[in-house]
């Protein structure tokens, strides 16, 4: 046994280094200057093409109003939310049946090209011969990089949460994305009304104050045994704050982290949200696990039976991010 001979410094550093690699890109700080999504085209003539918009600090010129858009997940849903389903050639992400009604109606006009996991390859993306690609983010493994897309000569936009430099994981950042998208696809009017509508929805749901700023733990894993939490740099963190609560792990710099139940119970959340995407099934398993545990059954949220199920897409950038805030806000006031 020569473990004790190893000095803890380098070991800790090595463990940390590996951890950072393992948890991937979750360390994006939420800098204020991020996004840079002001559209530069909404000038005198709304109908004018070509148009140039700024997306992730990059100028994107769109020659004519796109009619064959290919989209991904929340980015595709944004186009649907803008009422431009008829301009979409196809999309990857949730099947139509799994979409909220208003988005599903628009999605009916676009072809569902497949799920988004595992990420489709670049070839699949350009197969429908798109004139604009809207992405959740780049994906090195699938060959979907800025360089590859630029080389193809097809303009593309991504969501600010996934900007390679200074990503913006705020709800407001997403709203600005939606406005940029609206300009880029020539849905200027819809951009204003839809985003305005979202803002009003959130204002309405959060009009009354919440008593005592309850602490909220968002469980991101469908397996009760391996807790996965949204940290201070996550979109969910801001949603909780907007809704009038306080994120249990809001003090951390990471977007996601893997604490033990001991850590979670020690912080003692008032509300537990299942945001794993496992819906009622994983929530039932989680409740059973917590209630059956001699110690964890003493967590305030468990004692008071304060559990809420959110859809996976309620916590990632896309139109459903509004639903996430509203559901949280209503629950905290319920």
């Amino acid at each position: 046994m020569n473990l004790p001979r190893i000095t803890p410094g380098p070991l800790a550093a090595a463990v940390l280094a590996l951890l950072i690699t393992l948890t991937g890109c979750g360390f994006a700080g939420d800098s204020e200057d991020a996004g840079a999504t002001d559209d530069t085209s909404a000038g005198a003539d709304d109908q004018a093409w070509p148009r140039t918009v700024t997306n992730c600090g990059r100028e994107v010129t769109i020659e004519a109003q796109p009619t064959r858009i290919v989209g991904f997940e929340g980015a595709a849903e944004t186009v649907f939310a803008l009422g431009a389903g008829d301009q979409m050639a196809g999309y990857f992400g949730s099947e139509r049946a799994a979409l909220p009604e208003d988005l599903a109606t628009e999605a009916a006009e676009a072809e569902h090209l497949g799920g988004s996991f595992p990420t489709p390859k670049l070839e699949a993306l350009i197969e429908p011969d798109p004139d604009l690609i809207v992405l959740y983010g780049y994906n090195q493994e699938a060959g979907i990089t800025q360089e590859a897309l630029d080389k193809l000569g097809v303009p593309h936009l991504i969501l600010s949460e996934q900007c390679p430099e200074s990503p913006d994981n705020t709800v407001e950042g997403y709203f600005e994305d939606a406005e940029t998208f609206a300009t880029a696809i020539g849905a200027d009017e819809a951009g204003k009304t839809v985003v305005g509508g979202w803002r009003t929805e959130i204002e309405k749901a959060t009009a009354t104050p919440v008593e005592g700023e309850p602490t909220v733990f968002i469980m991101g894993s469908p397996d009760p045994k391996s807790p996965f939490a949204s940290g201070g740099a996550s979109l969910a963190d801001e949603q909780i704050t907007l809704a009038g609560g306080s994120n249990l792990f809001g003090d951390t710099d990471e977007a996601f982290l893997e604490p033990s139940w001991e850590e979670i119970a020690d912080r003692n959340p008032d509300v537990i949200v299942d945001g794993s995407g496992g819906k009622d099934e994983s929530m039932a398993a989680l409740k059973k696990y917590l209630k059956g545990d001699a110690a964890l059954s003493g967590i305030t949220a468990v004692k008071d039976d304060r559990f809420l199920v959110l859809d996976y897409y309620d916590n990632v950038p896309g139109p459903r991010v509004v639903d996430g805030v509203v559901k949280l806000a209503e629950f905290l006031r319920g």
Binding site: A12, V15, L19, T23, E258, P259, E263
Partner: peptide, 12 residues
């Protein structure tokens, strides 16, 4: 023990 203390509040 090491896995619990190197990267709190996460566990390695």
């Amino acid at each position: 023990l090491v896995g619990r203390v190197v990267a709190p509040p996460s566990e390695v």
